[in-house]
Design a protein around this nucleic acid. Sequence first.
DNA 1: AACAACACCGTACATCGTACGTTGTTCGTT
DNA 2: AACGAACAACGTACGATGTACGGTGTTGTT
Lengths: 255, 255
Amino acid sequence: MTDDRSGTGPADRTLALLWRGHGPPAPRRRGPAPAHTLEEVIETAIALADTEGPAALSVRAVAAAVGMAPMSLYTHVPGMTELTDLMVDHLYLVMPRPAWGRRRWRSRVRAVAEANRDLLRAHPWLVEVVALSRPPLGPGQMAKYEHELAAFDGTGLSDVDTDAALTFVLGFTQQQALAQHGVEAARRDSGSTDAQWWAANGPLLASVLDPARYPRAVRIGEAAGSAQGAAYDPGVAFSFGLDRVLDGLAALIEA
Amino acid sequence: MTDDRSGTGPADRTLALLWRGHGPPAPRRRGPAPAHTLEEVIETAIALADTEGPAALSVRAVAAAVGMAPMSLYTHVPGMTELTDLMVDHLYLVMPRPAWGRRRWRSRVRAVAEANRDLLRAHPWLVEVVALSRPPLGPGQMAKYEHELAAFDGTGLSDVDTDAALTFVLGFTQQQALAQHGVEAARRDSGSTDAQWWAANGPLLASVLDPARYPRAVRIGEAAGSAQGAAYDPGVAFSFGLDRVLDGLAALIEA
DNA sequence: AACAACACCGTACATCGTACGTTGTTCGTT
DNA sequence: AACGAACAACGTACGATGTACGGTGTTGTT
């Protein structure tokens, strides 16, 4: 009864949903015509997550936004995690993919990292989903993968190394987005500005951060903090890190 | 009534808990003697998360493991997120910190990355907590920071660059742990082996992964997959990535 | 002896994902 | 034309979650 493998074959339900429309055009269905399409559900859910934040992403909220009863969502999607997978793949599918033209690999790979950062910044909920769940291979993921691999054309890397290099770059970008997401979340639910936070916690920290016990930490922490205006600056971290990433790949490519 | 800033001063409750015992030795308290210590709560919670997994980490479960009623936990800790912050800092505090001796920077930084990877592997729940919440500065975090900064002694990097370099390395390690965590979670709740998964989904993917449409993706994906025995191998990704990270830092340090 | 501070507990609430059974619409078959 | 299977949509309900709130009993201070 509850056998997932009974519908279109012995396959993952999510994969079939991701690649919907790529098979035979469906042999006519019975029952009432669906009042809403899966596309509508996915796009509404994305819009909701974008405007209300990832915490507002619930079955009930999505259903309400689409205009149906909570449980009716389950006629379109097996569950919440599958919905998020579909949302992610949708964004991957529609994200811009500018032609690489005659640019050098370094410029291309930099563009890959920046495009991913921009996407993750535009949809903060994406960060949490992608980081924790590794969404399955859909058409969006596939198109993205193809395009990003092309950034390494002409580097002379082996296929295996090309894959590893791209994975490395994407991992870096994802981590940056996650870190930025973390500081923003912390700022949001502390409810105070950096200055207020330091006014409140500075005394305690000053009394406890003994320069004799933590010589490097105190000195370097202060240097970094005053250079950036905060203990951690996502912009600085991204630009420093991306330079290191590219240098690290250069050592492999130009050897 | 619900003013957090009424205890030891106008400070964050979490910070005060993290640095407990570092202030004046408490001016005697009234009421019944606490039946359990905060240390006991923290260590029990860690043990519980280690054995039962991160999903089992709930107020009720921790309270039961410690041996008290659910709501009694709140006399020791303001809330669940604060508890996890304390758990993280505790692990940081007790993690091994071998002396650096005469090793070169590359070997030291590699050791930093590996130590962090090992810690995150030993406590998979740590990955989720650290990635999503950026725990505040406690004694464990501080000791860890001090020790890891020392790995960059003698590199000639400026204070600001040293901090950025360490952040870069830690971010890489964290991302690796997250990715590994992701594949393990996926494997766990798919409930099938890689072979079973491919047997079930191979046909659909084969029919849809058109080599003419995705030439690089199909070729390189297959190459990477068969080289590693899976679409993503955490061990390979870590070792490839760490080499790139070190090369990238070398370009900065040895310039 | 009276009071205030404190640890601990029980009940209760909003919110979450979702299992289950029902209702009404529609197509394929008789 | 009539019937039955398939299907979309819905309502109700369950077990979790974190935690607000008000009590109860123990203890040190006045």
